[in-house]
Design a protein around this nucleic acid. Structure first.
Lengths: 110, 110
DNA sequence: TTATAATACCTAGTAAATCTATGTATAGAT
DNA sequence: ATCTATACATAGATTTACTAGGTATTATAA
C-alpha cells in the first residue's frame, strides 16, 4: 500500500515528533506522556521507542543531549528544522490516509 | 502498542469486509474498487490481498465460491455473520485508534 | 534491611504485515 | 503475433513493533 506502510512507522514517529515540537523531552517521559494523552490506548514499549529515537537522531530529525536530574541521567531530545519538516509531511500523510480510509469504509455518512 | 498492531492488518481487513458487507465481490474487483474509492491512495497488491482473503475464509468471516463469467473463472466472496461482527469490532477499533492519535497529535484544535 | 516498584537507558531476537517477484491462464486489442 | 488487462496463487524479502532480556539508580514497603 502507498500510505499504510509509512503509517505504521508514521503513527509512532508522528506522535514523538509532535511531543518534541512542543518541548524537549526524554524517552521515558514520552512513553508516559503518550500513554496519558491517548487515554491508555497507546502504551509504547521501551523496545519500540528507543530504537526509533536512535533512528530519528541518525536522520537528523532530533538531537540528543545527556543531563542529570536528581541523580538520574536522562537523555533529552529536541526537534530540528528537518524534524519539523518531517512532522508536517507526516501530518499530511495521516490526513490523506484517514480521509481515504473513511471514504472506503463510509464514515461520515454511515 | 495496543491498537496499532491490529490496525496495519486491520486497515486492510476493514476495507475488504466493508466492501463485502455491501455486496459479494471477487478479489481483483476489490483491488480496483478500493483504488477507486480511496481516490488512488490505496493500491492493494495481489500478493497482499489474496493471502488475506484466504485468512478471512479460514476464520469463517467470509465464504468463497467459484463461478464463471465470460470465459473467466472468478472466486466470489460473501461475508458471514461472524464477519459482520468482526467488521463492527474493527470499526470501533479504528475509531478508538483515530481518536487517540488525534488527541496526541492535536488535530481538531491545531 | 532487604525486597520491590518506579525511573531511565539499551539491544538481540522474534513475530506480524505487507510488498516484490514470480508463476499460471484467458480474453481482447493492436 | 504480441501486449495489456483480467484473474487467481505462492515464496521470499522487507519493514515495524514486540518480547525478553540486560544495566543502574532511587524511593517505598515489608
Amino acid at each position: 500500500m502507498k500510505v499504510n506502510k509509512e503509517l505504521l512507522k508514521g503513527s509512532t514517529v508522528i506522535m514523538i515528533l509532535t511531543l518534541l515540537d512542543r518541548k524537549e523531552m526524554y524517552g521515558y517521559e514520552m512513553i508516559k506522556e503518550i500513554e496519558c494523552q491517548s487515554e491508555g490506548v497507546f502504551s509504547l514499549k521501551e523496545g519500540t521507542l528507543y530504537p526509533i529515537l536512535h533512528m530519528l537522531e541518525a536522520e537528523r530529525w532530533v538531537e540528543a543531549s545527556w543531563s542529570e536530574h536528581e541523580g538520574r541521567k536522562r537523555k533529552y531530545y529536541t526537534i530540528t528544522d528537518a524534524g519539523r519538516g518531517q512532522l508536517k509531511e507526516k501530518k499530511q500523510e495521516w490526513n490523506l490516509f484517514r480521509g481515504a480510509l473513511e471514504r472506503v469504509i463510509g464514515e461520515g455518512h454511515a
